[in-house]
Design a protein around this nucleic acid. Structure first.
Length: 561
RNA sequence: UGCCGGAUGGCGCAAUUGGCAGCGCACCUGACUCUGGAUCAGGGGGUUCCAGGUUCGAAUCCUGGUCCGGCAGCCA
């Protein structure tokens, strides 16, 4: 139970940790988030580090940030910087415990020599192709490398010369001597070191041999005294290998627990494929608001609270499933509803002239900033004779259940007056260009003293005061729930949604000019927006985070069927 | 065909470890409302993968099967 008496969410990982503590396998909890700096973090990583940091915090332990930077050909400081920004933005703190697997290269090297000395590792001269062939298959055992029986002295000598740079890339590897017949292919003498004459973003040219992930990861955890090494399902089959290494070395033994990675409909969660979208120009960078990256979601207007809430709602299991994107959208709406500054913005303007309203007069009307938060106060909205309303808020021939404006009908303009549509003005082609309406001065503020009701309240903006704002309306990046499902010979790009971005210049009440970029907004009756980083006072730009729920949209959809 | 793992309403998860299968999202109905939003009240939807077994009683234990995912990088 927490302070409110509500049960604290638990899951199988937390239960394991609890058991370990109770049974004394570990005396304190230490976890880590171990990204490779080869791309930007996405919401799947947010799930992972919410578990890592969350569990550490709940059990009074610590969570380290460690960069698994063992492959210099794919990594870059740009990525380490973005990763730190994203984790911090999400509200997690690793204090000074910022570690790098590359810091452990010397220790790893020493341990490798120890395994050689113990006869548990050897230098192999087979090519990559030959290793692949001799590894066997899923159903047949592998064949021993002809170099498997080299003497300790020869192995040591060769390994030192590998390190000294005497051999070209790929010429030799250091391999663990385990079991070529193991049913677990990871145990068939896995490669520990490869020769790579590449400059590392941190260690420069100090090394020309680099540890494989499988050799580096478990020992890195061990060095940091990680009690619970929480990772995704695909590493489950590697666990016996990690255990083997720490046992041979006789060092601290972390417990690895695997959970299912996050999948969400209508998007992708693979760093490789996301990079492809960026590099081939399908999106405008890693922080494109259509991307499921944390930087993209941030720019889109998602808040850390919304993402954390989503992560806790989806839970942690070993079931490899797919979360409907509606869950994520519900989490942002829920959060933004409580915090977003309300504004009126007309996306597709329809001119309204109030024929009985004096010309050249401007009134200032009071509007509530956030009905969910009285502390947010009110603001003034200018009102005049000529207004814009939303095109879709008028129908010359209203269908059943359509409550909005129509000829002869009366509706309320939010925070303003009741108006009645008296005349529809059309151009030569029959397009509606203007509505001529009358207003009822007695309804100022939005209430009728005689108690009469209207069925609809419309948002509006004064034509004389409207500020043009570029709005970017985003739709799903893919047209299908599972973009990875493609016919033979095709790839996920075939499912890209050509309409994932629609730019519309909206007419917005002038209050928007006082707001800072990044602030959460709601354009009433439309959706949640936030001011983009491209926004300037002269040219405001707003991204649509997510539309508002709309029961009218559902009714319309059903009527079409 | 080998090994590892998984299976509970459409989706995500629970079920005090053998005791009336619940919750969130989605969906539907109604109330309320100056956002067709929010809120509130209610509703539909389950062969708990299948078949046997143990038991007064099985989502849970046992046996056998089915289906799905992962693993054959000098990637992580």
């Amino acid at each position: 139970m927490d302070d409110s008496g509500a049960p604290v969410a638990t899951d199988f990982v937390r239960e394991f940790v609890k058991d370990d503590l109770r049974e004394g396998r570990y005396t304190r909890v230490c976890t880590r988030f171990p990204p490779e700096p080869n791309g930007y973090l996405h919401i799947g990583h947010a799930k992972a580090f919410s578990i890592d940091f969350g569990i550490a915090e709940e059990f009074g332990g610590l969570c380290n940030l460690r960069f698994d930077d063992t492959n210099p050909t794919k990594e870059d400081v740009e990525y380490v910087d973005s990763i730190k920004d994203d984790v911090r933005w999400m509200g997690f703190d690793w204090d000074d415990r910022e570690y790098y697997a590359s810091d452990y290269f010397p220790q790893l090297y020493t341990w490798a020599e120890q395994l050689i000395t113990d006869g548990k590792a050897y230098v192999c001269d087979l090519t990559a192709d030959e290793v692949a062939k001799s590894r066997g298959t899923l159903t047949e055992p592998g064949k021993a490398s002809p170099y498997r029986t080299r003497t300790v002295a020869e192995n040591l000598d060769l390994f030192r010369r590998m390190k000294a740079g005497e051999f070209p890339d790929g010429a030799r590897t250091l391999r663990a001597k385990i079991d070529m017949a193991s049913p677990n292919i990871n145990m068939r003498d896995p490669v520990m070191y490869r020769i790579l004459h590449a400059t590392h973003h941190r260690t420069g040219d100090a090394w020309c041999i680099y540890p494989m992930y499988d050799w580096a990861h478990g020992q890195s955890d061990s060095i940091e005294q990680i009690s619970h090494s929480i990772c995704t399902l695909e590493f489950e089959i590697h666990r016996p290998l990690y255990n083997w290494f720490v046992e041979q070395l006789g060092i601290f033994h972390p417990r690895q627990i695997e959970f299912a990675r996050l999948n969400i409909t209508y998007t992708l969660m693979s760093k490789r494929k996301l990079r492809r979208l960026v590099e081939d120009g399908y999106v405008n960078g890693w922080d494109d608001p259509r991307m499921p990256t944390l930087s993209g979601l941030r720019r889109r207007g998602y808040t850390p609270e919304a993402i954390r809430s989503f992560c806790s709602r989806i839970g942690v299991t070993k079931i490899d499933g797919v979360v409907e994107i509606g869950m994520l959208e519900d989490a942002v709406r829920d959060d933004l509803n409580k915090r977003a500054q309300r504004l009126m913005a007309v996306l597709r303007p329809l001119k309204v002239v109030l024929t009985n309203y004096p010309e050249g007069v401007t009134e200032e009307l009071d509007a509530v900033n956030n009905p969910e938060d009285a502390a947010a106060g009110t603001r003034k909205v200018p009102f005049g004779r000529e207004l814009h309303i939303e095109q879709e808020d008028f129908r010359e021939e209203p269908p059943p259940k359509y409550f909005r404006l129509a000829p002869g009908r009366e509706v309320r303009l939010r925070y303003a007056y009741f108006i009645r549509c008296e005349e529809v003005v059309k151009d030569a082609d029959g397009n509606i260009t203007e509505l001529r309406c009358t207003y009822d001065p007695a309804t100022r503020g939005g209430d009728a003293p005689d108690g009469r009701k209207v069925k609809a309240t419309l948002h509006w903006v004064s034509a004389a005061h409207a500020v043009p704002v570029e709005t970017r309306q985003y739709d799903y990046l893919f047209r299908v729930p599972n973009p990875e499902d493609t016919p033979e010979g095709q790839d996920f790009t075939m499912h890209l949604n050509p309409d994932s971005l629609t730019v519309i210049t909206a007419q917005v009440e002038p209050f928007i000019e006082t707001l800072a970029p990044g602030m959460s907004l709601q354009f009433e009756r439309q959706g949640y927006f936030c001011l983009d980083k491209d926004s300037t006072p002269a040219h405001p730009v707003a991204n649509r985070t997510v539309s508002l729920r709309s029961s009218w949209a559902n009714i319309e959809k059903k009527m079409q069927k």
